[in-house]
Design a protein around this nucleic acid. Structure first.
Length: 481
DNA sequence: ATGTTC
């Protein structure tokens, strides 16, 4: 049966409250996207999330929404601890603190074009990618892994990877408070031991990009972006460690949901009250995994800078590869939001959704205070990515959130089938894009046709006012799993 | 996403 939807405006749709829903659903999408969504399970998942205890406001879906584990990918849901609100591993996802960071440079695209092949090879060599990728030059002792979980990106900086200024430009300054390594299993710690500084697989990537178009010069200036500039994007998460934390806690949450008498429309929504031991324990373990991911992106940044210096035979002062921003898109976090005129401390779940705080917010870095928090939206490897900034409307309507990417339209299997007879590197080369990938299968799963056009996704976000578009980036060289 | 089913 199709989901009942009421159109609010060209880019907003309401899923009215019915049955066991505690709040209504709100979907950001244009008509064409809605027609596709009507045939899928993702909107049913938006409705399921709306039944969970303590949900506040609305169960929200971004224009890149698609089916996920329990909660949809592209979903935002906030819970109030004072109203029995819950935390759910499915509302964060298996890749805890999957996120994106963007580095700027003082280089123009034409300056690196002659070195691009060498640069791609060196990046591919210096940043391990692929399923199970690990580093031989960095295997942490157990007590050191625990420090990473507690300190996140700050651990990396303390150990010589990057600078203190980097930390100013990371969501939560690269350290989620309340991480407790003691509630992370030995197995999770073991899986993470030699995976720090690796890319992983799937949609994770490392890209050398060119600023293709500046769409808002005021905001671009504030972010230090200019036409034809070389930028680098890093998209990865917490690797096997985060996966294991999620898996461990899903099992615990299934028992907890029964113990606290929480009725689940789908077992994959298993959860526990925020103020229960199980809920606190998950949040402490999740924060540890999130910090591991921040450290991971910080270490990769170090090797990216080093690689650029080696290949271009120059130094850091010439390249000025500073960090524009690093933002999470799979996380549950304590944040203060206005609800019905009252400031409330809520646990905001963003699963495939990006924090997008407005100008003037205390969490928005000093340098961007006037324009808002940078929001990094990766597209697929054959098209483009976008830089946005957060808006006041997003803060008021979506708990300060916006979309996170293009969103899949083909399953991995369907994408592989479509790519079967294709020469993917040659297709990308025809567009001027160089690719280095650990395996052909992942490359096939990641072809452009597997994704929605990210330009259409950010256009919905712009029209709805939950993001301001700053610049479009196009890939020059891509490193994939 | 994931030592892609301990």
């Amino acid at each position: 049966m199709p989901i009942k939807l009421q159109q609010i405006d060209p880019c907003r749709w309401r899923i009215p409250r019915e049955g066991k829903m505690r709040v209504e659903g709100l979907v950001f999408a244009d008509r064409a996207m809605i027609e596709v969504l009507q045939k899928e399970q993702a909107l049913e998942q938006v409705r399921n999330v709306a039944t969970l205890p303590g949900i506040v406001g609305r169960s929200i879906a971004m224009p890149d929404i698609h089916w996920g584990y329990g909660f949809p990918i592209g979903g935002v849901a906030a819970f109030d601890p004072e109203d029995g609100g819950v935390v759910s591993p499915g509302g964060v996802g298996y890749d805890i603190n999957c996120g994106v960071r963007l580095l700027r440079s003082e280089l123009e695209a034409e300056e690196i074009r002659p070195h691009l092949k060498e640069l791609a090879d060196a990046l591919f060599r210096n940043v391990p990618s692929g399923v199970g990728s690990h580093r031989r030059d960095l295997s942490l002792a157990p007590h050191e892994t625990r420090k990473v979980l507690e300190q996140g990106a700050a651990w990396a900086v303390k150990n010589g990877f990057g600078s203190a200024q980097d930390l100013d430009h990371i969501e939560e300054r690269g350290t989620i408070a309340g991480a407790d390594p003691e509630v992370v299993s030995e197995r999770a710690l073991e899986r993470g031991r030699n995976q720090l500084g690796t890319l992983g697989s799937g949609n994770h990537f490392l890209e050398v990009q060119r600023v293709d178009e500046v769409l808002d010069s005021e905001a671009a200036n504030a972010l230090g972006l200019f036409q034809d500039q070389v930028t680098v994007s890093i998209h990865t998460g917490s690797r096997g460690l985060g996966y294991q934390v999620c898996d461990d806690h899903l099992k615990m949450m299934l028992r907890a949901a029964a113990k606290y008498g929480i009725e689940l429309p789908d077992r994959q929504l298993c959860c526990a009250p925020l103020e229960s031991p199980e809920g606190r324990q998950y949040l402490a373990a999740m924060a540890g995994a999130a910090n591991f991911a921040f450290a991971n992106r910080q270490l990769i940044t170090h090797w990216v800078r080093e690689t650029f210096e080696q290949v271009l035979r120059t130094g850091p002062s010439q390249l000025r590869m500073s960090l524009i921003y690093d933002v999470c898109h799979n996380i549950a976090k304590w944040e203060t939001h206005q609800v019905e005129g009252r400031a409330r401390r809520l646990c905001v779940h963003r699963k495939g959704a990006t924090r997008a705080f407005p100008p003037g917010h205390p969490e928005t870095p000093e340098l961007y205070r006037e324009v808002g928090q940078p929001v990094l939206i990766p597209g697929d490897m054959g098209r483009c990515s976008y830089v946005l900034v957060g808006t006041e409307d997003a803060f008021n309507e979506t708990f300060g959130s916006t979309c996170h990417g293009a969103g899949r339209v083909l399953s991995r299997h369907a994408a592989r089938k479509l790519a079967r007879r294709r020469d993917i590197p040659a297709d990308l080369a025809a567009k001027g894009i160089l690719i280095r990938a650990a395996g052909r299968a992942t490359m096939a799963e990641e072809i452009s046709e597997a994704y929605k056009d990210v330009s259409e996704v950010v256009e919905v976000v712009r029209r709805a006012g939950i993001g301001r578009i700053v610049a479009r980036l196009v890939p020059m060289a891509v490193v994939k799993g």
